[in-house]
Design a protein around this nucleic acid. Structure first.
Lengths: 187, 187
DNA sequence: GAAAGGATACCTACCGGTTGGTATCTTTAT
DNA sequence: ATAAAGATACCAACCGGTAGGTATCCTTTC
């Protein structure tokens, strides 16, 4: 607020701050409780300033979600690049990336975010399209039924990460990680 | 509106209609977009009438969620009662019940469950407690790691049910069902 | 058995508060 | 100087919830 005048103006930085704060707030109190005013306050900007960067609240949410998908996609890409085994390569990366999203057994804020965003049909489409595109790309190496189970289990893990905020549902995460990784390897 | 006067008053029926309409609306446009007015309209009742049946919006949501959990629990119980094999009995029922929730058209109740859980920490607790209770009850038959994977895959399937509204992510559902069922049986 | 009378079910109308969004002015950087 | 960046003040719409009235049902009483 007060620093906004002293510090040199860096619109890119403010925009990033808005995105990050929105992600954090949405993770904390759900996407339903996300308000423009709260995001603006958290980023040290007034509501008017907010609307200078984003034409609408939905535009912000879309941007945050696109950010999250891009980050996840990057992680998957990196994991795949370092994987010599062709069979199940994408699935293995998908599963491992999901595991990395969690911190100390709990779901990372980004996970909570992406899950709450599935409430929005339009954002669901964004995710669906990403997934379908990647799947079509790796159809030859990742079409096996057992790999589908592994991917679904990763999704389930993502969901369970939310519940583990309240209590521990999964006993041994490392064992599960190894078990799932083994599931993606050729027999 | 006009029929409300001629038709015999059946509060139980109206209450049920409110619950069902709330579940349907929540499935269609997310729990965030759920409004008391919309629920009342869909059930053929005014907003004032709504508040006669439920003291608050949260009370309605809680009731809907409890309803869904109870229904799912009943399905699991029935499936377990008809299963002679002790090993993985609960997991098998859990997986099969998830598949059955998925089959009824576009708006699966399990979809709403996950959405509600994400939105409200208190509802997450309700689900956690149910799951933990059942797991403790069947710890001897369902503690195997492979069974955990099967349950997680079921959760993931539930999540994917959301996405299937927009596009088909899962190729062969029946094959997946068989594969997952086989996973829960002793080797 | 039917009128009385209380309880239940439901509606109309409204209120306080919040939210997304806008119009307008001021400050900063180049 | 001028265009971007941001502040201030404000609005229209909506949402959950309340107040108070009316119709309908179910007993009770004679």
């Amino acid at each position: 607020m007060s620093t906004a005048h002293t510090r040199p103006k860096q619109p890119e930085l403010v925009r990033r701050a808005l995105l990050d704060c929105a992600a954090r707030l949405a993770a904390e109190q759900g996407l339903a409780g996300l308000t423009v005013q709260a995001v603006a306050d958290a980023a040290g900007v007034t509501k008017g300033g907010f609307f200078h960067h984003f034409p609408s609240k939905q535009a912000l949410i879309d941007a945050v979600f696109a950010d999250l998908v891009a980050h996840f996609d990057g992680e998957v890409e990196a994991l795949m690049a370092a994987d010599p085994e062709p069979f199940g390569r994408f699935t293995r990366a998908y599963v491992e990336a999901t595991f990395r999203e969690r911190l100390l057994g709990r779901a990372a804020p980004s996970t909570i975010m992406s899950l709450s965003m599935l409430a929005d049909p339009e954002l669901r489409l964004v995710w669906s399209r990403w997934f379908e595109g990647r799947m079509a790309q790796h159809a030859e190496t990742d079409a096996s039924p057992v790999l589908e189970i592994a991917r679904l289990a990763a999704d389930g893990l993502c969901l369970n990460g939310l519940l583990s905020l309240d209590s521990t549902v999964i006993a041994d995460i490392e064992a599960l990680r190894a078990e799932l990784a083994a599931l993606t390897r050729p027999r």
